[in-house]
């Protein structure tokens, strides 16, 4: 214990310390009524998802990524994502034929601590309908990452 109090000032005097170290994760927050997608929302094929979330960090935001993959095997991720089938109805496990794969990285202007991320993501007309996971990943400049996962349904 004592060595800690002796060594740290000693090493700090040598220039080894930096007090503005970032140790907190960025945040993915709703923006009010226009927040999308929300859990269990239904999106028709050929339509579009108007992605809208507020991204925040206490120091500086890094980049974000949106990834959509099918949940035909009913696996579950984290945060909000669950299963969205109607009560009493057991969705069968489907083998994907032409599942929707979407994976895109987006930059955030340098120096931002708060940024409203808006993207229009068209839902292709020929993909398999069913339950999908909409994953939002966000980093800050220091490399901390936050995840948010939302279940959406692509309808016929």
């Amino acid at each position: 214990m004592k060595t800690k109090y002796l060594l740290i000032p000693l090493l700090c005097a040598l220039g080894a310390c930096s007090s503005d170290k970032d140790t907190s994760l960025p945040e993915i927050l709703p923006v009010g009524e226009s927040t999308a997608p929300l859990n269990c929302q239904v999106y028709p094929r050929g339509g579009a998802i108007f992605f809208d979330y507020l991204l925040k960090d206490d120091k500086e935001l890094g980049a974000y990524n949106i990834e959509i993959h099918n949940n035909f095997d009913h696996h579950t991720h984290s945060t909000e994502a669950g299963e969205c089938h109607h009560e009493g109805e057991e969705e069968p496990e489907n083998e994907p034929v032409n599942p929707w794969i979407f994976n895109k990285d987006y930059p955030i202007p340098a120096g931002s601590t708060s940024f409203e991320a808006k993207q229009t993501i068209p839902v292709p007309a020929d993909v398999d309908p069913g339950e999908y996971h909409f994953m939002i990943r966000l980093t800050d400049r220091s490399g901390w990452q936050q995840l948010k996962s939302v279940s959406i349904i692509v309808s016929e």
Partner: peptide, 22 residues
């Protein structure tokens, strides 16, 4: 650990830095 994404995942890259240990 970088701020960038690559194929949907946070990119970690090997780099070299000066390190002091005691």
């Amino acid at each position: 650990p970088s701020a960038d994404y690559y194929e949907g995942l946070q990119r970690y890259g090997y780099t070299q830095a000066k390190v002091l240990r005691a």
